[in-house]
Nucleic acid binder design. Structure first.
Length: 680
RNA sequence: AGGCGAGUAGCUCAGUGGUAGAGCAGGCGCCUUACACGCGCCGGGUCGCAGGUUCAAUCCCUGUCUCGCCUACCA
């Protein structure tokens, strides 16, 4: 008794296989079976590969001409290969009484005939794995036919060696494992395709001797018998069979063109990881075979772009996006930036979940850049680019520029460094995010804001050209850093920026920024960080306590060291402007002011906001209590850590010093919070 | 079944041996003369689970669970 999901194929059976160790079927191996319909006689064979004794009845019918596994089995056991379907899916003469039936009809009738003869032994539901056409869902019928293959092993070997020797490397490197696994187990490549268009296979069959003649041009006569009646193979070549020639065929090969000499091999091949075998590995093999050199030195593989649910885009499913439509709606820059933002080196099984909201975010970013540039241009009426050309952080008198100018110059270098490093490592998302952060959070949120009031202040007219020049410098750097990610808007805006004599005609031919260590300024950055911290804390205090933006309260800053006093004293104007304050007093110590006072801590700096009248102390108390909880937790954690003798003994000096300093700061801040709470 | 990955804030994802970050989403307040495609502020995470190594683990090791991808197979 055998089980089958496809009864109709029994017409082509030429054996029944059982497992050699299966006690149920021991005596049957070698016996001959008579086919109930065709009358054909065939053996019961022992098949340890094909048969899983735990599955079904432990006996399997073998149809070598219509099943890939049975085909292999048929070769192993020298079984006849009986084709029971023709190319239209109709039963051939081999099918005996069923001849001429469509395969679907044949299935019904074979089943009925089995029942009629009393041979049916029941059935049960079974999830089968018969192949279906992806587009029309028709069952695919495996059949035997003559097709052309490329012998892959001799081609694979040099490619494996090239990767082993590092002539081509994968980014991320982990893909070389997958590559080796596939290449070491490579199968011959079937290049025949039964499509109605494409390059016809250059093989001709002789009517006289049936032998194939393979030639570059249409042959006059059969290479074997000289026969003149030749017919070309109907099949066409697999598309990848021409694609694997891409790296050199596109450059004029087989002619030794200038382009071929210049661009072969190329540097980076970039594609989705699903293309690794289809194309990348094959280009590598073809390149080594025809050009004797690898086609590219680096293969960058990114994850697949899927829809927002993580489903692979496919025309059949209808979840594809049309890049041209997206570009039409949101701009090519937005589309490009959105993809860059999401593109990091491929981790297997992960993908880029592409959604329109990413494109919309990128478009907002483009809008932001546009407006920032507009602001700068609006303030350049009296600006002379040539005057500023060689100045960056100090004036002709040798005097340093003001804090914001020195700060953004330093930040330009940091951003440039970060972006370049990320790009060199193929971490495109990180690079894109770094540009975004630099432009939005540093240039727009801080530098432009710090520039505004000073540009309008008649008392600072002498500073004006420095601020203007620095704004232009920052935008110039920003546009050039962003250019690979948003080529169109950056060119447009860059063209509008004032430039000194002799500047390049297009942003495309400017140099990509390189960090200049001369402008990296740690002291300036930490001073600015202090200003930012105090401003942020005051803003938070005001917002949480509903102090309207029209009110400009006086503030007292109690600091615990001279460094902070000097910095905050020196930049009271900036703090006052950004935090919308009135008078600012910075002091080392003093009695807490009486009356309507709001208190908050910026690290260990105590901020006392003095109001006309104080209303509800609830929000202030809640915030101070939250601070107290956090600070207490931090203090306990640090104290416990530092009390551990093994920590003191084994931890690096720098870590110890840092933690000790942090404990001291935390304790000081906590004491001030406690005092403020007591006063409430 | 074998191979390869991933599990971190509501979502999408960064990240580092020294007490966690972004974008978006959410809440509150603002038309503060570049931008409401905006500005300011706020909330939110025992970094899948269990062991181990270490002075110290989200990060290293082992096991485990879940999810995904690739390859093979499913009479």
């Amino acid at each position: 008794m055998v089980a089958t999901t496809r009864p109709e194929t029994m017409l082509g059976d030429t054996a029944v296989a059982v497992h050699p160790d299966d006690p149920r079927h021991q005596g049957k191996i070698g016996k001959v079976i008579k086919h109930p319909f065709t009358g054909r006689e065939f053996p019961v064979i022992a098949g340890s590969v094909l048969v899983d004794p735990k599955f079904g009845t432990g006996a399997v019918k073998v149809t070598p001409a219509h099943d890939p596994n049975d085909f292999e089995c048929g070769k192993r056991h020298n079984l006849p290969f009986v084709s029971i379907f023709d190319e239209k899916g109709l039963v051939t003469a081999e099918g005996g009484p069923f001849v001429g039936l469509d395969r679907v009809e044949a299935r019904k009738q074979v089943k009925a005939k089995i029942a009629e003869l009393g041979l049916e032994r029941g059935g049960k539901p079974h999830a089968h794995a018969v192949g279906h056409c992806q587009r029309c869902n028709t069952i695919v019928e495996p059949m035997i036919s003559t097709q052309w293959f490329v012998k892959m092993e001799p081609l694979a070997k040099p490619a494996i060696e090239a990767v082993e020797q590092g002539k081509t490397r994968f980014v991320p490197e982990t893909w070389s494992k997958t590559f080796f696994h596939w290449m070491n187990n490579i199968r011959d490549w079937c290049i025949s395709r039964q499509l109605w268009w494409g390059h016809r296979i250059p093989a001709w069959y002789c009517a006289a001797c049936q032998q194939p003649t393979v030639a570059r041009t249409t042959p006059e006569k059969c290479a074997h018998c000289g026969g003149k009646d030749l017919t070309q193979d109907e099949d066409v070549l697999d598309t990848w069979f021409s694609s694997w020639l891409w790296p050199f065929a596109t450059l004029g090969w087989p002619d030794q063109t200038r382009e071929l000499r210049t661009f072969y091999p190329t540097t980076v091949m970039e594609t989705g990881y699903d293309i690794l075998f289809f194309w990348v590995a094959r280009m590598l093999m073809a390149g080594l075979h025809f050009m004797k050199k690898v086609p590219f030195r680096t293969v960058y593989l990114h994850t697949m772009v899927t829809d927002e649910h993580g489903d692979k885009m496919s025309k059949v499913k209808g979840n594809t996006i049309d890049p041209l439509e997206v570009a039409q709606k949101h701009g090519a820059d937005a589309l490009r930036f959105a993809l860059a933002w999401l593109t990091n080196p491929a981790a297997q099984g992960k993908n880029i979940k592409f959604s329109m909201s990413n494109v919309e975010d990128a478009r907002r970013f483009a809008n932001k850049i546009w407006n920032a540039t507009r602001f700068v241009l609006m303030n350049l009426d009296d600006y002379n680019a040539d005057q500023f050309a060689d100045r960056t952080t100090e004036g002709p008198d040798g005097a340093e520029f003001d804090l914001p100018e020195r700060w953004i110059m330093s930040r330009i270098q940091r951003a440039t460094e970060e972006i370049n490093t990320a790009l060199e490592d193929y971490r495109f998302a990180e690079a894109a995010q770094a540009v975004y952060h630099f432009i939005w959070n540093e240039i727009c949120d801080w530098y432009i804001e710090l520039a505004k009031a000073r540009l309008q202040d008649p008392a600072q007219a002498g500073e004006r050209w420095k601020i203007q020049g620095t704004l232009v410098t920052a935008l110039d750097a920003a546009m050039r850093l962003l250019h690979p990610f948003m080529p169109f808007i950056t060119e447009e805006l860059w063209q509008k920026l004032p430039k000194p004599q002799g500047a390049p005609q297009s942003i495309m031919i400017t140099l990509y920024p390189i960090a200049d260590p001369r402008y990296v300024d740690d002291a300036t950055e930490s001073a600015m960080a202090l200003v930012q911290r105090v401003v942020a804390t005051v803003r938070s205090l005001r917002t949480e306590n509903n102090v309207p933006s029209s009110v400009r309260p006086k503030v007292v800053l109690n600091v615990i060291d001279d460094y902070k006093k000097t910095i905050l004293d020196g930049y009271r104007g900036l703090v006052s402007e950004q935090a919308r304050l009135g008078e600012i007093v910075v002091r080392r110590a003093g009695e807490p002011p009486t009356g309507a006072v709001l208190t908050a801590m910026a690290g260990d700096i105590e901020i006392l906001l003095i109001l006309e009248a104080k209303a509800d102390s609830g929000p202030e108390r809640a915030k101070l209590e939250r601070d107290r909880a956090t600070l207490t937790k931090d203090r306990d954690h640090l104290a416990k850590k530092l009390a551990n003798p093994q920590f003191n003994e084994k931890a690096p000096r720098a870590v110890l010093d840092k933690d000790r300093a942090r404990l001291a700061e935390t304790e000081a801040a906590l004491a001030k919070v406690e005092a403020a709470l007591a006063r409430l």
